[in-house]
Each structure stands twice: as structure tokens, then as C-alpha cells.
């Protein structure tokens, strides 16, 4: 591929990417200011309910202090520029109520690797398995075995991941006690590059990962199967068959490769949505990722942390799309021609 052309294409995509981030964050900003109800008042009410504050009414001076601390003081225009400046240029999301004194950024950075590790890996494993099995199921679409697998997949794909996780948790953690119930690693080991820690992480990650994989694999099986069945009806496949090519080669190079293209796009979208998907699973397993952080932030009414996680979740969708745009020309010659002439 022509390097200069690709560079120009990449820069164009990057510009679009940055522009969309700006647009999306602006919308998110407006959205947060539009939510009815005053977060400070709500916060105070909560404190009172829990008996932390003796004051009967919201103290204006104290409220203003908190407003300043979480960055919602001043006019809306001031707020907007401060917000954009902080978020976009300094990756700064303000202070946290959850852990006073800790910037939200640090909370996010601590949680993010766990979410990416658990969710990213599970989504990826589910995709690889699903595409391969779905491809074979479509290839052998008239065999009873393939039909059985399809029916099972239809049923499994209807189970919400959270419920699958509940079932696994009950069976393998509570009843059989093969796997731990919560956290990302045992409290007794020191995080770092040592065997105990690594084994612990794997043991703690297995159940949540399994829940995600079981459900997502069935979805990938069904979608890949549909794609393969459509490809089997294509002229180019009949023609390739008439060339007397080995069946294995036909499957990998003609059927699977063509089915792979739309599935790579779908994978990118899935990966973009991992923050969305992480929320529930992580709360169930008390897995210290963004999902658990968000749940804690919700109970504490931690405005900045909630806002930051929303922004991160949007950012991850946009980033996945951007990366897909960069990869697509390499794997699909049609995109290459279309986008770079």
C-alpha cells in the first residue's frame, strides 16, 4: 500500500476522531448540566439521612465549596471551558468525593487495567471461538450436530451475561468452592510479577470471564453462521468449488475470510462497548474495574467520577471505531480502493 496515501487517510481519520470526541464530550457536558435536580442538594440530603451532618438546611458557603471542588461553580460558559480544558488537554476529571483528596483520574487509572484485562480478553476469546465454531456450523449447516448447536446458541444468547454469571457463581464458587467469590486477586498476595499473584488473578478472573464468554460466544456463533450461509450462496463460492480446490482451503480462504470482515467490524464495536458491559459483571464479583468504581460512585453520589466514567465509555467506543478505520484498509482491498483511490 502506498505509504503517503495511507498517511493522508490516517490523518483525515484522526481529524474526524478528534472532532467527534470534542462533539461527544460537549454533548455529555450539556447532558450532565441538564439532569434535573441539584447534585449538591442531593448529596447533602444523603449525608443527613446517614446522620453525618447536623445542619438542617444546606449551608450556602459549604455548598459553594463543594461546587468549586467538583468544578460546577460559575456560569455555564465558564464551566464548559474549564471542563473541556481539563478533560481534553490534561486528562483531568477533578476531585473525587469517593476518596477525598484522590483525583478521579487516579481512581480511573487504577480501575481501567482490570476492566480492559477482564473484559477485553473475554470479548476477544469469545469472538475467536464464536467465529470458528460459527463458521464450521454454517459450513456443515445441514448436519444434525450443527443444527443442535445452533438451537443451543439461540437459547444461550438470550441469557443476560449477569444471569449467566449468577449461575456460574452459585455453582462453582458457592456450592463447589472451586473458584473464589469476589475480588480480582486474593488479599494475601502482593500484587506484582510473582507466581502467586498471577495464579490468583487467573483464578479470580475465570468465573466472570466464563460468563461473558459463554453468552457472547453464542451470539458470535449465530452471526457468523448467518454470514457463512449467505456466502455459501455466493457465485464466487460455487465457482471456487468448480475449481476442485481442497475443501479445507475453500473453507479458510473463501468462506471464513469473507465472513471475517464484517465480524472484525463487529468485534471492534464490541470492544468499544466493554465499559458498558463491565458494569454489571464487575459489581457481581466485586471486581475492581470501572464497573465497580461506578457503582461505588453512584452510592456516594460522586459527580466527577460518574461523569468521568461516562466520558471514558464514550471515548472507548470512539477509539475502537478509529482503530477499526485504520485497520480496515489493510484487511479489505475494497475499502482500500474506496478510501485511498
Amino acid at each position: 500500500m502506498d505509504r503517503r496515501k495511507f498517511l493522508r487517510y490516517g490523518l483525515r481519520r484522526l481529524a474526524v476522531y478528534l472532532l467527534t470526541i470534542w462533539g461527544a464530550f460537549t454533548i455529555a457536558f450539556v447532558f450532565f448540566r441538564l439532569i434535573p435536580g441539584d447534585p449538591i442538594e442531593l448529596y447533602y440530603r444523603e449525608l443527613q439521612a446517614e446522620g453525618f451532618s447536623g445542619e438542617s438546611a444546606v449551608n450556602d458557603a459549604a455548598a459553594e465549596t463543594i461546587r468549586e471542588r467538583i468544578g460546577i461553580d460559575g456560569t455555564i460558559i465558564e464551566q464548559y471551558f474549564r471542563f473541556m480544558g481539563n478533560v481534553i488537554f490534561r486528562a483531568e476529571f477533578g476531585g473525587s468525593i469517593l476518596a477525598v483528596g484522590t483525583p478521579v483520574r487516579d481512581l480511573i487509572l487504577r480501575a481501567l487495567p482490570w476492566t480492559i484485562g477482564l473484559l477485553g480478553l473475554s470479548v476477544l476469546i469469545g469472538w475467536v471461538l464464536g467465529v470458528i465454531v460459527g463458521g464450521l456450523v454454517g459450513w456443515a449447516r445441514n448436519s444434525p450436530f450443527a443444527n443442535g448447536l445452533t438451537t443451543i446458541s439461540i437459547a444461550l444468547s438470550q441469557v443476560p451475561q449477569y444471569i449467566a454469571a449468577l449461575a456460574l457463581l452459585y455453582l462453582f464458587a458457592f456450592t463447589l468452592a472451586w473458584f473464589p467469590v469476589r475480588n480480582a486477586y486474593p488479599g494475601t498476595v502482593i500484587p506484582g510479577f510473582n507466581l502467586d499473584f498471577i495464579v490468583g488473578v487467573i483464578r479470580h478472573g475465570t468465573l466472570p470471564a466464563l460468563a461473558i464468554i459463554i453468552v457472547s460466544v453464542s451470539g458470535w456463533i449465530l452471526s457468523t453462521r448467518s454470514l457463512v450461509v449467505l456466502i455459501l450462496g455466493e457465485d464466487y463460492l460455487q465457482y471456487a468449488q468448480s475449481k476442485g480446490l481442497p475443501r479445507g482451503y475453500l473453507f479458510t480462504n473463501y468462506v471464513l475470510r469473507n465472513a471475517l470482515l464484517p465480524q472484525i467490524t463487529a468485534l471492534a464495536i464490541s470492544l468499544g462497548f466493554i465499559v458498558n458491559g463491565a458494569l454489571l459483571i464487575e459489581t457481581l464479583f466485586s471486581y475492581p474495574g470501572l464497573g465497580l468504581l461506578l457503582q461505588r460512585a453512584v452510592t456516594q453520589l460522586d459527580y466527577n467520577t460518574i461523569q468521568a466514567i461516562v466520558l471514558i465509555s464514550i471515548l472507548s467506543v470512539l477509539t475502537a471505531n478509529f482503530l477499526l478505520d485504520l485497520v480496515l484498509p489493510f484487511i479489505d482491498p475494497r475499502v482500500r480502493t474506496q478510501e485511498m483511490g
Binding site: Y236, Q238, Y254, N258, L261
Partner: peptide, 14 residues
């Protein structure tokens, strides 16, 4: 060998 009627789509697009 076989030369199909619908040769527009007879080649693998990728």
C-alpha cells in the same frame, strides 16, 4: 473447467 454465467461475482472479492 467451468466458466460461469454470472462471472461478475464469480471471483473472490478479497
Amino acid at each position: 473447467s467451468y466458466i460461469p454465467q454470472a462471472s461478475m461475482n464469480a471471483l473472490n472479492p478479497i
